[in-house]
């Protein structure tokens, strides 16, 4: 191989690698990104079975039921519709009724959302961004009272 051919081979190899990485990235974005839904959007959404999604909303007051050991079930609501959720594990510190929450997992055929992770806000002035935006759209959210946010 001449020097020029070698250089072409190297550049070609690099381009193949970059192409493969790009293809992989877009494939992964299509497959592995999880969409965010509020309970009311969920019925309109067409989900393939077993697709991972994020479900956000408020923990419906009075819906928390503790089952055997570490099992817990509750409902996530946007004050319009509500979706029952089951979860096994430790709930976050700030998980409370009426509180903003994001759960991640899959929606079962029976309409029960099986969550494998539950995120609540980190502190009392923080509402998960997706939840806050959606609630604002629906006009349920009110801006924080002055002095409570920074």
């Amino acid at each position: 191989m001449t020097r020029k051919q070698k250089r072409l081979a190297v550049i070609g190899g690099a381009l193949v690698f970059l192409g493969a990485a790009t293809a992989l990235t877009f494939y992964a974005l299509g497959q592995k990104a999880s969409y965010f839904f509020m309970p009311a959007d969920l019925q309109a959404a067409s989900l393939s079975p077993g697709q991972r999604i994020r479900l956000g909303g408020l923990v419906e007051p009075g819906s928390i039921r503790r089952g055997q050991g570490t099992q817990v079930s509750f409902a996530v609501t946007d004050t319009d519709k509500s979706v029952p959720v089951t979860y096994t594990g430790i709930l976050p510190d700030l998980f409370r009724e009426g509180q903003g929450v994001i759960t991640e997992g899959t929606l079962g055929a029976d309409g029960v959302f099986e969550a494998d992770s539950v995120l609540a806000k980190h502190d009392e002035t923080y509402m998960p961004k997706e939840v806050a935006d959606s609630l604002k759209e629906k006009g349920i959210w009110q801006e924080e009272t002055p002095g409570s946010g920074s």
Partner: peptide, 17 residues
């Protein structure tokens, strides 16, 4: 119940809690 929830939300129960 829904009216009550809406009222609570209007009182900022959602936002400040």
């Amino acid at each position: 119940a829904a009216r009550l929830t809406t009222l609570a939300a209007s009182l900022g129960l959602v936002a400040t809690e």
